[in-house]
Design a protein around this nucleic acid. Structure first.
Lengths: 193, 193
DNA sequence: ATACTTATCAACATGAATGTCAATAAGAGG
DNA sequence: CCTCTTATTGACATTCATGTTGATAAGTAT
């Protein structure tokens, strides 16, 4: 039949192809999609190749999280540099966290190895939150409020990305009401300050 | 050495022993602890016995969730019947969800088989939410607000039970500030109405 | 062309988790 | 004491994911 033709990529090409595929599978298949064999198959290579580039499965997943938080960080930072009004920042963060499986991936990592130190991209994420907190309108005596607001937004976004649909069903929200949730939350957060 | 002595329990005893052990392991070891072999070992029986009683691993986990949501439901219902003031109800729900791994178990179930229909205890949970929504003070034109508040509390509690500690670190909250979070949220929710 | 580096892959080894099955024994009821 | 039900178990089979290794070939440099 076909002679075995090998595609030989540069390491950078391979890595980005793999991570791209992994991200796609995360979005489509959920966290099940983030195993070596599946990703490799979807990327059109053998799983040994993936291990060759990343060293291990968990390293691959951490690289993916790294990449995703980097993207998130730069998104938020550019938003902060633009003329986005400060009271919209939390809304932005919220939607960014609940989209693209960011929240799900974070949650999965936290759930899987609950021995937390594994949380990678720590410095990045920390920087991200600092930027946001500084950008939130603070009255001087509600110093801590900004942090609590961020915590609320982060936890809610995470919970939403995991269980949002199911919870909405259980609570009895219509699709329209459910879709309004981020705006509703943003409105109330604005009134916090 | 020792003659093989078998303990013969009634099916009810076995089941409750297994679920008890599973709950303990969920709290101590996280979701990793919820595998057949581990639970069986910790309960002092062979894993075949566990399968004999529950039929499968996932059935055991669903039974555990069933039990936990039942406990949660009766807790909340008794709280509703007592003289708990309505504006404390969300706080109660919040703490109940973020304790004992309720949130983590729910999240794990949702993450694992994201094919949602597996969500068991649907009727129970649904009833739970209905009771709570009815108990929330509603102005007539903020009919939907109660539901959104519940959604906020549920998602935040879930996110908190998964990532709370890590997020708090990343955001830079002190332990005291972090501990204040539920009260802080409850205070603001009260002002929603 | 030749040699060298290394990305790629098939095959194998390993280990964990789940589930099945037939044999055993504990207890209940006759 | 005998019988019958069934909770319990060890051993086996299966599946799946991860990781290893030696061989192969694609591309680069000399």
């Amino acid at each position: 039949m076909n002679v075995n033709k090998r595609v030989r990529r540069t390491p950078a090409e391979s890595k980005s192809l793999i991570l791209e595929t992994a991200a796609k599978r995360l979005a489509e298949l959920g966290l099940h999609g983030l195993n070596i064999s599946g990703v490799a198959k979807a990327a059109g290579m053998s799983h040994a190749t993936v291990i060759h580039h990343f060293g291990s499965t968990s390293a691959m997943r951490e690289a993916l999280l790294q990449q995703m938080t980097n993207a998130l960080l730069s998104d938020v930072i550019s938003a902060l540099r633009e003329d986005v009004s400060p009271d919209q920042i939390l809304g932005r963060l919220f939607s960014m966290l609940s989209q693209d499986g960011h929240g799900r991936l974070l949650a999965w990592l936290a759930l899987d190895h609950q021995d937390i130190d594994v949380l990678p991209a720590k410095s990045n994420t920390s920087e991200l939150f600092k930027s946001i907190i500084q950008a939130i309108p603070n009255s001087s005596d509600t110093q801590g409020d900004a942090k609590l607001q961020v915590l609320l937004v982060a936890t809610a976004a995470m919970g939403l990305s995991i269980c949002g649909g199911a919870l909405s069903d259980l609570i009895g929200l219509s699709d329209e009401e459910f879709a309004e949730f981020p705006k509703w939350l943003a409105r109330h957060l604005r009134s916090f300050a």
